[in-house]
Computed example of a mutant assay.
Amino acid sequence: MTGQPILVEVVRNEFVESVHRGCLVVTAPDGSVQFSAGDVTSPFFPRSANKPLQGVGMLRAGLGYDGAELALGCASHSGETGHVERVAAMLSGAGLDPAALACPPELPIGEDARRAADEPRKITMNCSGKHAAMLATCVANGWETDGYQEPDHPLQVQLAKTVEELTGESIAAVGVDGCSAPLFAFSPTGLARSFGRLVQAEPGTDERRVADAMRAHPWLVAGSGREDTRLMRAVPGLLSKSGAEGVLAFALGDGTACAIKIADGNKRALAPLAMAVLARLGIETPEGLSDLAHPPVLGGGQPQGELRVSWSVP
């Protein structure tokens, strides 16, 4: 299904300065497409938005996490002290240390944590929680931890199988994500449907354990001031996970779900689109999130315009 793309205009002093184009799809609780804009059937790399699906795969492979540890295993954390300490505890619980992580050393992505950091480290890389969970899954199964990030490792084979089941699609391509783990390509529609399945699953199932853990610990999923954290705190029952290069997926508690991809990869277009979708679904802008609905465009440190959503969907 290919239609007119969504547009997010950057307006400065009532002049359209630039435009971000992309696609979005909203699926109903039964998985049918409720409305869409742009190409939502061609495969793409969802980047970190696929972490909840990987989390389900790890549980199916015997990972014993729940609650905070499971939320951090599905996170793109900010590298704040609480994040790093908990990742260290996850590794220690598996009899490992940060040297076992296959993710590259990086500075934290959280602004305050980044300023306070002395040097790039593996454990402050935003995907270190996922990698710690992957390692713990390997230890639980007696699998080799060396090379756990390789596509033919038993862990990654299980995760690929789970992604295909949850999205209802065959993986179109396998790449290497920024954290070194395999990255699976599928459509935005498959991504939305998978999030709907997570929130609608029966309590206690692996899918629901992931959704419940992330919604109960939104700060661990992202961090202070981050959009995923703010959205999950403000909208009851909402599950949200963003990804690099302009990707966001979220689901309401009833199973209605949305996937967004910005073509130029600019993440600033994601929040206003998410808020526009929520408004179309009858959820008015929650208190304290108006800056997400209409992010200001600054000039000289003062608001000179805003980001505006433009779309044409049935």
Results as ranks from 00 to 15, higher is better:
G255S: 12
D66S: 15
T137V: 04
L248T: 03
E150M: 11
D228K: 03
M58W: 03
A211K: 08
K241H: 07
A133V: 06
L307C: 03
A49S: 15
A244L: 11
V157N: 10
S92L: 12
Q200W: 03
I260C: 01
P46D: 01
G142K: 00
C74V: 07
L53V: 08
C179Y: 04
L101C: 04
A37I: 05
G67Q: 10
D291F: 08
K241Y: 05
A133E: 00
A213L: 13
L278D: 02
G300M: 12
F44Q: 08
S224F: 14
A211V: 07
R114P: 02
G55H: 02
L270F: 02
H77P: 12
F45I: 02
G225Q: 11
G288F: 06
C74W: 03
R21F: 08
E306G: 00
F186W: 12
T81L: 13
E150P: 01
D254L: 11
M134H: 05
Q200A: 11
G62I: 05
E85H: 12
I109F: 02
G64Y: 11
K267Y: 03
S76V: 00
A113T: 09
P272V: 03
S36W: 10
P182E: 09
A222K: 04
P108C: 07
V309Q: 06
I262Y: 01
A68R: 14
V139R: 00
D97N: 14
V56Q: 04
